[in-house]
Design a protein around this nucleic acid. Structure first.
Lengths: 191, 191
DNA sequence: AATCATTTTTTAAACAGCCATTCAAGTTTT
DNA sequence: AAAACTTGAATGGCTGTTTAAAAAATGATT
């Protein structure tokens, strides 16, 4: 039990430091030394735990994707109408623990880097496919077949767009407010 | 007359090469040498014409922003109802000359880098404000006041989201198709 | 047309700096 | 004692930028 403790603690610390440091300095520019300083560790220890810079980035992305997945599953279970389940997907993306400027910033930087890394683009593809199929499943129960795809694109692109905007905000964003706006958009799309 | 020719030719060549090279390799990773090779020139000549790597990037962004501005003004003049003008803004963003994978890719990378560069973030802010005010002006004529802001966000975020998606596509995108989808979304939002 | 001084354009090579990664030598924990 | 953890320092490679010198274009003068 104790054997695994330190390893887990360092993993979390370094991933949190990565989120902060990447947000502050930019994905392509941030250095191992900066991330290490943010975590109060040394650059060498990052390689000890993650093997390489890319390994750290992948682990950080996995961490965020897991948070998203968890939030989604949680909200999905509580909802019991198609419309509520649609909103649950939105709520997950705009949940308190996920929808913050540093995390949206990181997400956007990952989007930018994904096309150039096999490992990152795989994660990206999987996540996008999951969101997509959730949307489709609910929309099919609510709209005529020929409107489903338009509605899905509108909702999914809206979600991405909001994150993109949040990533560039220089003031903190308000998750509750974003959720309310998202519900308005859902209602708008459902007519 | 002939005096200015070479300078202008090189500017265009290098900017085109930048779009291609950044799309292929990524904004944060692409090197001066790679861009130069793409243009059939030397890295030193880039500095001769643009002063620095950042100068080249700024010039490239300005080039794209100008294309967008031109396309927008053009379509705006031809439209003569609020709804058509809304579509004109969309059409500009999805016009044949602008809506391509490499250019969307560049745009996304630009979004990611903007927060870390005074010069780039200024360009970004100006462009976003222009789109925003165009949307608001038309929506005010079409919707009750309390729905205008929701509708604007839905449309603007949708636009950004579609670009984001295009940037990650590994097959060419279809501008005409994107415009049609955008019109559907406009109609959806207008009810 | 031909010459030649001047300006503009081009690049190879040198420069200076930075960074991810490795490694050996320590420290701490089990 | 063994295993796990930590890091300072060395390594090797790569990058943007500068420089100096050559090549090409230009324009004035003959």
């Amino acid at each position: 039990m104790g054997r695994k403790r330190i390893r887990d603690i360092r993993h979390e610390e370094l991933i949190e430091a990565t989120i902060t440091a990447v947000h502050q300095r930019g994905y392509g520019v941030v250095t191992m030394a900066e991330i290490a300083r943010e975590a109060g560790a040394s650059a060498a220890s990052i390689n000890y735990y993650f093997g390489s810079k890319e390994g750290l980035m992948e682990a950080t992305m996995r961490h965020l994707l897991n948070k998203l997945k968890t939030a989604m599953i949680e909200g999905y279970g509580a909802a019991n109408s198609p419309r509520d389940r649609l909103c649950a997907v939105m709520n997950a993306n705009f949940s308190d623990g996920l929808y913050s400027v540093p995390q949206c910033s990181l997400w956007m930087q990952f989007w930018g880097s994904a096309p150039y890394s096999k490992r990152l683009s795989r994660l990206h593809r999987i996540n996008r496919a999951r969101v997509r199929s959730h949307f489709l499943a609910e929309l099919r129960a609510l709209l005529p077949a020929d409107q489903v795809e338009t509605a899905r694109q509108a909702l999914q692109c809206y979600m991405d767009g909001v994150w993109l905007q949040a990533a560039q905000s220089d003031v903190p964003v308000d998750p509750a407010c974003a959720r309310r706006a998202a519900h308005d958009v859902v209602d708008l799309v459902l007519g």
